[in-house]
Design a protein around this nucleic acid. Structure first.
Ligand SMILES: [Zn+2]
Ligand SMILES: [Zn+2]
Ligand SMILES: [Zn+2]
Ligand SMILES: [Zn+2]
Lengths: 136, 136
DNA sequence: GTCGTTCTGCGAATGATTATCACTAGGCGT
DNA sequence: ACGCCTAGTGATAATCATTCGCAGAACGAC
């Protein structure tokens, strides 16, 4: 039913994605072109969206409204879910563990009678490097 | 330096905001026009943005990327900060309390050396009413 | 009332994302 | 290796929420 073909473009995207870091769709596009691949912007968007749905990349939305994507181990296992602490200045992100949060969420949900809960936690601040650089 | 004038438009916006609920900027705009006020869309955007910055309204971004605004007591006191559990179907939102979360955030932040942390928690699910309505 | 600012309205501009649609190319059966 | 069917691609147009730019309107202190 759902045939997914491995194309040159998709491979290139996956390959680029492999060296970590958050980048916008357009950012990845530039990256790919810089590497010599001729990939269309629309294709990059489609690829990222597909990967995001299958859990292979996770996304985060910046204050300015653009979506950032980053490769993130296959979502086969529970560990695919986690949260980030991201630097407002340079974008560097750290995976964090929020002990007990998943449980709290489940409790709050049932307390209010809500079903099919999904959640988002976004922590952003200024990383040590940027904080140091800011001291001028 | 920063004088803020109370205009007919701003008053109308504040007044409309008063009857709670999340609405998009365009949503509030329609609301205002429905009430007879002739307010420009841009003005509504500007007003909401200002109120949001001063903490009088809080915002939430939907999956489709549009920003929703809702009146929320003046941010003079600590209680201005809280989180929501929102229904994906009807938009109804409940204020929730996530015990100890603020503390956990602070700890995580310092653990990673990040400064000026700000956070967002978004819980969304299907409220009891919508869940019931879905059973057809 | 007068005046310096701030605010408003309008439409045009932006900018990220999506839709279109003719064309290309996986990849399975042979 | 050959061909067909269909998913994938790419250039561009379209969407859509939000922002800008600027001329004129309206605060509000004097
Ligand atoms: Zn940084
Ligand atoms: Zn979680
Ligand atoms: Zn509901
Ligand atoms: Zn909080």
């Amino acid at each position: 039913m759902t045939a997914t073909r491995m194309t040159r473009q998709r491979a290139a995207l996956l390959d680029a994605l492999r060296d970590g870091g958050f980048r916008s769709a357009q950012g990845w596009h530039e990256r790919l072109r810089a590497d010599g691949s001729t990939v269309g912007l629309a294709t990059v968007y489609r690829g990222l969206q597909a990967l995001s749905e299958s859990g292979e990349v996770d996304t985060v939305v910046t204050d300015s409204g653009e979506t950032l994507y980053r490769h993130c181990g296959p979502g086969e296992d529970e560990h695919g879910h986690h949260h980030h602490l991201r630097c407002r200045e340079c974008g560097r992100a750290v995976d964090i563990d929020v002990p007990g949060f998943e449980t709290i969420v489940a409790e709050l949900a049932s307390h209010h009678g809500y079903r099919d809960i999904s959640h988002t936690i976004e922590l952003s601040g200024v990383c040590p490097e940027c904080a140091a650089a800011a001291r001028d």
